[in-house]
Design a protein around this nucleic acid. Sequence first.
DNA 1: ATATAATGTGACCGTTAGGTCATATGACCA
DNA 2: TGGTCATATGACCTAACGGTCACATTATAT
Lengths: 206, 206
Amino acid sequence: MPKKTFFNLPQEKRERIIKSALNIFSSKPYHTISVNQLIKAARIPKGSFYQYFKDKKDLFRYLIQLIYADKVKRLRKVLNDSYNLFDVLRIMTREAIEFAKENPTYTAIANRLMTDPELKKEIIADFLPDGNGFMEELVLRSYESGELKTELEPEVLARIIMSIFQVMGDYIYEKSGNLSAKKSEELFIHVINLLEHGLKGCEEND
Amino acid sequence: MPKKTFFNLPQEKRERIIKSALNIFSSKPYHTISVNQLIKAARIPKGSFYQYFKDKKDLFRYLIQLIYADKVKRLRKVLNDSYNLFDVLRIMTREAIEFAKENPTYTAIANRLMTDPELKKEIIADFLPDGNGFMEELVLRSYESGELKTELEPEVLARIIMSIFQVMGDYIYEKSGNLSAKKSEELFIHVINLLEHGLKGCEEND
DNA sequence: ATATAATGTGACCGTTAGGTCATATGACCA
DNA sequence: TGGTCATATGACCTAACGGTCACATTATAT
């Protein structure tokens, strides 16, 4: 967590620091970013940086919290316990695409976090915004409701679903520009159908 | 590619360099490893390192080639064109688990490569050992044979399959010790069944 | 034995990093 | 007005980095 001197800063300065840090962290891998770059972009002296933050990770973790607070708030609004697993996935998809469109910088940073195993361990370990925990719970509920016919353990299935969503996100991100939100959502829907019914469809029983 | 002075080295020295580099690259993330660490571990002077390799990446790429040459050779032995997609996945699974058991260091390095997007781009871009290309071709053939009932584009499906295998690999790697090869293979088989028939199974048509 | 080319080597270079700290500045209170 | 305290600042520290290069050593050819 940033120190109280940071929160006492005049809004303009605080926002400048946050904004420039968001820009940088979204533009290249975490480990290639130095404190020197951050302070130069924020136009603050190095001494000040260390008055506000313990180190680079302290600042980064703060940004991640900002981002996930936003994401989770958004999801809470549209989700409730009555949905089944596949409905939830469909809703999450729609929200995620919308969120990515509205907050490309946030999305880029979240993406960098999720695709960097070491970083993920360090950052998510503490406050678990949506580590696999969330998905695991969802899957567990689905198992209990009896809608799933697989023998896979919930933890594994949760991981698989998370990684599929990750890969789909990457794909859409790469193609962005060429891919409309509508087309993106269609893509996800097909994937969710695949999860429901498999690649072979249901008429074949071998 | 390493320089010819490297290949002219007495076998003992060359193997010492390779072995120590394999150890280090398997033990921590690529970007945290410095040339200084590599030369210290290999017990060679810094000047020599630069006689043998252009830089760290040169050495790393060479190791990756060694690793994938092994992997591909192994796969070629058991695969032929008559198998369908799911059979191939099952065979690949068995081979991958065997390979991981026999070559844990190789596996750890390959894993680090595959989970580091920037590195992957840099290293795989050149010689494409098993970037998604291999899987994409496999999937394409499967589409043409008519065994798949999904509307997903082949590229997307290939990526999904790759990422699922990646995640399963991670999982097994984490649990290794607690998980026998037999149990691991079972896990994969369930996942492949999931791909074939979906999570809901086939009696339900909604 | 001597000349020539290939290889080995570690001191050395410039650069950058993360982090500190003595001092300067400015706000608030007596 | 003078004193106290939080904050601002950039020069400075040590450590490590990637990379080079003049020189030492060894192998090869004559």
